[in-house]
């Protein structure tokens, strides 16, 4: 009940960010679908973004002067834009992969294995 009446801090945001990050890492590790791996990357990026935004806010910590304020927002924006770029390229690669292997299963792309 204390969380309903107490303000939240950066640490709480970090917890959510950590959960997203770990989910993303697991997703990248175990998904066999190439696009599933891509979704894992998106989750990881979002976990990081959440941390940046949490650190940027002066209202979420004991000493607001330590907040990185605008820098956090700007870096989060850069991450979002780069994620869009990354998704576009990854999608193109996935389509090419599909053209070559007629599947999107990343475990099948083992032609170079000795």
């Amino acid at each position: 009940m204390s969380l309903l009446t107490q303000p939240v801090g950066v640490a709480h945001y970090l917890v959510v960010g950590a959960v997203l990050f770990v989910c993303g890492v697991i997703c990248m590790a175990i998904k066999r679908n190439g696009l599933g791996v891509l979704m894992g990357i998106e989750l990881v990026l979002n976990g990081a973004n959440l941390n940046f935004v949490a650190f940027a806010s002066p209202f979420l910590r004991a000493d607001g002067a330590n907040a990185i304020r605008l820098d956090g927002h700007v870096i989060a924006l850069f991450v979002i834009v780069l994620a869009a770029a990354e998704a576009a390229v990854a999608l193109a690669i996935a389509l090419n992969y599909y053209n070559n292997f007629v599947t999107i299963d990343v475990d099948r792309g083992d032609e170079l294995k000795g």
Partner: peptide, 25 residues
């Protein structure tokens, strides 16, 4: 393992805890 490390890190810095003034947010 990763989650444990991250959670430990999240709660280990004193300044990252909730603000003392409940109206801050």
């Amino acid at each position: 393992a990763l989650l444990t490390i991250l959670l430990q890190a999240a709660f280990s810095v004193k300044d990252w805890a909730a603000p003392t003034d409940p109206q801050a947010a």
